[in-house]
């Protein structure tokens, strides 16, 4: 398949089931809502070493948040309910509660609860207050800047992690420009995050390593500097490869994000320096979700 002069490989991205939740973080100003959200999504690019993958889904207008303040919607993905619960709690406590003026609410609902305010309330040392409204319980924790408001529970839903595609380009600058363009388009798609820094992965990995302690290591078949040294997937004119990884709440969401991203790259045409788009998989043996690029782009 060739779209606007750019080759789309006949391959697929392989993705895994994850557990997900959405949190709404608000603050007195857009800046502080963003600061809290940005802090919460720090060090959470990949479950390989971070335990959780997070991202800002989008910015919320004042009339979209529960307390009419500027807000951010954050999605968090982990490999197990337990791991997700741990990170939701620690990150809300350490990153959101500590940020001045913020409040934190569940951003989606299901029958699987994650303790949020229900556990953070003990920070109030007995002075915490509980409020129930419309079936939701909130905790008001007296803190030095005033009061931290946090919903009793967040809720978890099934999610999918590891949707991806790779952009192969004639130079690093070209790969980056194409990636930025893809991320810009993909950030408009709801229910997905691109958990890596700025949404783009500069150092995509393969499973396993020659070193026993490592579960992932550099994907040498796509490393341009190793073209002569190992089995390579790259043509002689490919000088840089960047990957975009997508976590989403459903297969349709991830496919929509991949489509938006790949379309944005292909709009650049061959003049943009992108030679090929491919995807990462493990031969289909490990992950139940397969996103075939040519189906996604149909």
């Amino acid at each position: 398949m060739i779209i606007n002069g750019i080759q789309i490989d006949d391959t697929f991205a392989e993705a895994f089931p994850m557990r997900a939740t959405r949190l709404i973080i608000t603050g007195d100003t857009k800046r502080w809502a963003f600061t809290a959200a940005n802090s919460m999504i720090g060090f959470s690019t990949s479950v390989i070493a971070c335990g959780v993958e997070t991202g800002i889904e989008r910015q919320l207008k004042m009339n979209e948040t529960p307390d009419s303040r500027p807000g951010m919607s954050v999605l968090l993905f982990a490999m197990s309910s337990k791991e997700l619960a741990k990170h939701v709690l620690t990150r809300t406590g350490q990153c959101v509660m500590t940020t001045p003026t913020t409040a934190c609410y569940a951003g989606l609902y299901s029958d699987k609860k994650i303790k949020l305010g229900g556990a953070l309330r003990y920070f109030g040392d007995g002075y915490q207050l509980s409020k129930q409204l419309g079936g939701k319980r909130y905790w008001r924790i007296p803190i030095m800047d005033g009061e931290f408001l946090v919903e009793e529970y967040a809720y978890q839903v099934p999610g999918i992690g590891g949707g991806n595609f790779l952009i192969l380009a004639k130079s690093r600058g070209m790969a980056l420009r194409a990636s930025e363009r893809a991320i810009k388009a993909m950030s408009k798609v709801p229910n997905v995050i691109m958990p890596f820094p700025g949404g783009v992965v500069g150092s995509g990995s393969k499973v396993g390593s020659k070193y026993k302690a490592l579960s992932a290591s550099t994907n040498e078949a796509f490393c341009p500097t190793l073209k002569g040294l190992t089995h390579t997937e790259l043509s002689p004119d490919t000088e840089s490869v960047m990957e975009i990884v997508i976590d989403g709440l459903s297969e349709a969401d991830i496919a929509a994000a991949m489509r938006a991203g790949i379309e944005a790259v292909c709009e650049l045409g061959p003049a943009g320096g992108v030679t090929r788009i491919t995807a990462g998989n493990y031969g289909g043996k490990l992950g139940p979700y397969h996103f075939h690029l040519r189906d996604v782009m149909k």
Partner: peptide
């Protein structure tokens, strides 16, 4: 102060 919970209510 401006209580956040009151904004929700």
């Amino acid at each position: 102060y401006n209580p956040s919970f009151l904004r929700v209510y």
